[in-house]
Design a protein around this nucleic acid. Structure first.
Length: 482
DNA sequence: CTGGGGAAGGGGCCC
DNA sequence: CGGGCCCCTTCCCCA
């Protein structure tokens, strides 16, 4: 009976078939049963070790790689299988069939390439907070998606960027069990990517429109803890889970630090959630926590910036005159820009850094111009348009009406129509007054260059009733003198 | 359900 | 290189 059951198992288990140990006849009572997956894994592991040993002994190495003057030797078939860059390089014309292949790299350091090469041959990625950006940049250059994904997860956990609760466990398993499978795994990933995001399961967070606001277990995770476990060992025994790593984008709109406490939470590109946009209704402890977290995140962002290599990535294009056009590649995504400054600006959408807070509502912005636009539109009623009838108003025919920290203009007719005798109206002159001298982002006096709509980290949050159309008397002069 | 408007974010590029 | 402007896209709210 038992024998019959096991025979059925052998026939039915499919992918995870069981096999008898060598030497056992089918008539004997089986002593040990082997899982096909275990055999495969053991074989892969052994093969990888052999290849790595051959590399270290420079046996059968047919590829010479010169990185900033330092020579590395490797096997072209391994490189071909591990890196999209080498796939392109080695498959270009008859050169790929040459007896030996030479390549020179100056865009990353030998130390970085050592990490990459060790990963290719061992499945272990030696990441630290000091090398992660450079490794990621090199992996991007070499088109090694699995390494990029490991780096993304590493950075993300270091930055304490939140992910959804339901994803957190999976993410942990990713970092713990990401398969090496540098040959098949990478290939599979690329195939998945070629099939488009919809085919990748689960879909990347960037593409989702999940309303979940839950925070992940990454929140509060100690950076040091991550650093101490900086060697992200991949487990060759697991399937190619690195697809899951792809599902977590560094730029997480669910990040509570992504916007201000109480302010609109942006979901995906461009959108805002304005429900409760008359903000600052969150309770004080949460504000304190978020303030602290925000400070920590700013520090992490600074650290991230500090570790950025001098050139994050350079891609050569050619113009009509066949002259190369240099571009800077974002280490976190595929975006390239012409100017380094533009890249720096772009990086804020990955780091979540929002250095420009609004004094009125404490909402934060990535750019000064966005803050200015926000303040003028929301809090200063710069638009000479009646909010109700949309007609053009002038300083004589329109009045500024306050709604919480928001201000807008209404024409005299609309105000009378609303029939609010007690509508508090700011004088237009007051609304148009230029703010007084202010504090900069860092709380240092910076003169006229910084306007009153910028708030320091230590400033009290502006009160905002958040009530619907509660019109309050606002003294412009007092407010702006502050 | 749908379209328009408002607000916000991001990219390109000029000064 | 930073600031600023322009333009586009995206999302939400509301009629």
């Amino acid at each position: 009976m038992q024998k019959k059951l096991k025979t059925e198992m052998v026939e039915d288990l499919g992918a995870s078939r069981l096999y008898r140990a060598p030497g056992e006849s089918s008539h004997q009572q089986p002593q040990r049963w082997f899982n096909a997956a275990d055999i495969t894994v053991a074989h892969q592991s052994s093969l990888l070790k052999q290849l790595n040993q051959q590399r270290r002994q420079e046996l059968f190495c047919d590829c010479n790689l010169l990185v900033e003057g330092q020579l590395f030797r490797a096997h072209r078939n391994v490189l071909f299988a591990s890196s999209g860059y080498f796939r392109m390089l080695l498959s270009q014309g008859p050169d790929g069939l040459a007896d030996s292949v030479d390549a020179t790299f100056d865009v990353f350091s030998p130390e970085t390439f050592t990490v990459i090469l060790d990963f290719i041959y061992s499945g272990q990625l030696d990441l630290s907070s000091h090398n992660v950006i450079e490794v990621m940049s090199a992996a991007s250059y070499l088109q090694m998606n699995n390494v990029i994904n490991f780096c993304k997860n590493f950075i993300k956990s270091s930055l304490e960027i939140s992910v959804k609760d339901e994803d957190s466990e999976r993410c942990l398993s990713v970092s713990e069990t990401c398969s090496f499978n540098s040959v098949a795994g990478d290939e599979t990933l690329e195939q998945q990517q070629q099939q488009g995001p919809s085919s990748v399961s689960p879909p990347p967070a960037l593409w989702t429109r999940d309303n979940s606001r839950s925070q992940s277990s990454f929140i509060g995770k100690d950076l040091d803890q991550e650093s101490s476990a900086s060697v992200m060992k991949t487990n060759p025994s697991s399937p190619a889970d690195d697809l899951h790593a792809e599902s977590e984008d560094l730029h997480d709109p669910q990040d509570p630090l992504y916007t201000l406490p109480g302010s609109e939470r942006r979901r995906g590109k461009g959108g805002t959630k304005r429900k409760g946009s008359n903000s600052n209704r969150s309770n004080q402890p949460e504000d304190l926590d978020l303030q602290e977290a925000r400070t920590q995140k700013a520090e992490k962002a600074e650290e991230l910036y500090a570790t950025l290599p001098p050139i994050v990535g350079v891609i050569g294009h050619f113009n009509r005159d066949s002259n190369p056009i240099m571009r800077f590649k974002c280490p976190f995504c595929t975006h390239t820009v012409k100017r380094k400054a533009d890249l720096k600006r772009h990086l804020r959408c990955h780091t979540g850094e929002r250095p420009y807070p609004c004094q009125a509502c404490n909402k934060r912005f990535t750019r000064l111009e966005h803050l200015r636009s926000h303040f003028e539109t929301i809090h200063q009623a710069r638009k000479l348009v009646c909010r109700k009838c949309k007609c053009q108003v002038t300083e004589d025919t329109g009045h500024v009406v306050c709604e919480g920290s928001r201000r807008y203009r209404m024409c005299t007719a609309c105000i009378q129509e609303v029939d609010c005798d007690d509508i508090p109206m700011d004088s237009l002159d007051g609304a148009n007054e230029e703010p007084a001298l202010l504090l900069g982002v860092d709380g240092e006096e910076e003169g006229d260059s910084k306007r009153s709509w910028m708030v320091t980290e230590d400033d009290d949050l502006a009160e905002d009733s958040g009530a619907d159309l509660i019109i309050q008397q606002v003294d412009d002069s007092d407010e702006e003198l502050e």
